[in-house]
Amino acid sequence: MKFILFANTDWYLYNFRLSTARELQARGVDVVMVSPPGEFGQRFAQHGVRWIPLRMQRASLNPLREAGTLANLVSLLRDERPDLLHSFTLKCAVYGALAARAAKVPAYVNAVTGLGYVFASQRAKARALRPVVSTLMRLALGSERSRVILQNPDDAQAFHSLRLAPPQHIRMIRSSGVDIARFNADGRGSRGEGALRVLLAARLLKEKGVQEFVDASAQLRAEGRDIHFLLAGMPDEGNPSSVTRSDVEAWQAQGLVRWLGHVDDMPALLRDVDVMALPSYYREGVPKSLIEAAACSIALVTTDLPGCREVVTRDGHDGLHVEPRSAASLARVLARLDDDRALLQSLGERARQKALADFDERVVIRRTCEVYDELLPRPLAEAA
C-alpha cells in the first residue's frame, strides 16, 4: 500500500508530518512526500522516506502556470499510483483533490489547517479570489472518495455556512499534535528572577501579529522594563502578507527584538523562554508554536480567535488573551506577567496539562489513521 503526503513546503511536511509518515511506515505503508523544492526535502532520506519535488509557486495567479502545476501533479500521481493522497493547506487540498480525480486515485484526504490568506484577509486581491476558491473547493471536495480534516470548530462552521464540502465528509482533529516526550518541562525551573523572555515563533506574516509584537517591545522598553523579545521564523516569500527581511533586520538593529531565524532545535530554545506570544488576527488551524510551548510548561499569550482559542480556552486559566491588532493590549499583558511570576508559573503548569490531555501527537496520528480507514478497502494494520 502506498500513500502520498502533499504540501506547499517541504518545511511543513518535515516539521509537522514526519511523525505521521513514520507511523504509517510502521504499519507497512510505503510513504512518499511531495512538495515544491526546498532545503528540507533531502532530510527525508535520513528517515527512509522518499521525497519528490514538484514545481509549484504558492502565490502564483498565472492561469497557464497553475494549469501546468496541476498537469504535473496529475502526471506524478499516475506514475506513482498511490492508494491514498493526503494534501495539506488550502491550495494543495484543492489541487490535490482535482488531480486525484483526474488520476483516478482511489482515496484522498484534504487537511485544511486554517482558511488562510484568501478567507482571512480583507485586501482586494483576497476578496476577488474568494468566490473563485470557494467554487473550486466545492468542485474538488465533494467526492464520496474523499474526506476533509479541519482543526477547529470555527473552520467547521465556516465550511458548513459557505457549503465548501459536504458535512458528512468533514472530520475534526485538533492540531497536528506535539511530541510530548520531546517537548517537556525538563530542565525548566521557576522563573522568578531575571528578565522576562518572550518568544514569537511563526512564519513572519503580518496577520500573525508580528508588528504588534515589535510595537509592544518598543512600548515596554520606553516604560523602562527589561523584557527580552525573541523572534523565531523566517519571512514567507510566497505569501503576500509576509514582512520583509529588511523589516526584521531593522527591528533587530533598533534593539526591539533578537531575531533567531529558523530554529531546528525548538525544545532547546523553549527551555529558556518564559512566555510564548502569538497575537494573531489570522484564521489559524491550531498553531503549532502554542501547543509546543504548552507542552514545555510555558505561559501562553494569544488572541481569542479561531484556532488560538483552542489552546487558550479561558483567559487567566490556561493562558492570557490579548485584543487583536493591539500592541498596547499585548504590552499590558506582558507587563502583568513580568510583575506576577506566580501567575507566570501557574499558567505554564496548566498549559502543560492541556497539552497532555488534548494535543498528544499519538492521539492525532491514531485519529488520522481512522480517517484513512474510512476510505480504504481494508483497515491499516496496527503498528508492530
Rank of each mutant, 00 (worst) to 15 (best):
T9Y: 03
E212N: 05
A355Y: 08
H169Y: 02
L343G: 11
M266I: 11
A140S: 15
S246I: 05
R171N: 03
H169K: 15
M137C: 11
A195I: 06
Y117L: 15
F16L: 10
A253K: 15
E144K: 11
C92R: 00
D315I: 01
S326L: 07
R336F: 07
V118P: 08
L220E: 04
I227Y: 10
D272M: 07
E80P: 00
I149T: 10
V105D: 04
R309N: 13
D338F: 07
L129D: 04
A195H: 14
R197E: 11
S217K: 02
A124I: 00
P279L: 01
T303Y: 02
E80L: 02
V371S: 12
E349P: 02
F6C: 14
L347D: 06
L256E: 10
K2S: 13
L64V: 15
P287V: 08
Q254G: 04
D10K: 01
A7D: 09
R50V: 12
Y372A: 04
C92T: 14
P36N: 05
G348D: 13
G224S: 09
E310R: 06
C296Q: 04
V94M: 13
G177H: 06
Q57A: 14
L200W: 04
D30Y: 04
H228R: 14
P377L: 03
S87H: 04
V275A: 09
V32I: 15
S161W: 05
P324N: 05
N152A: 10
R27K: 12
E349I: 13
A67K: 06
L76C: 12
Q353W: 05
A351S: 14
F229M: 11
N152E: 05
Q25D: 08
A328K: 09
S60H: 09
V112R: 07
L356T: 08
G114W: 05
C308T: 09
S246R: 06
E382C: 06
L141A: 07
A351I: 11
V214H: 09
D155Y: 05
R325G: 00
S175V: 07
P53T: 12
P63M: 12
R309L: 03
G41M: 02
V49Y: 10
T89P: 05
M56Q: 08
Y281W: 13
R81P: 00
E374Y: 00
Y108H: 15
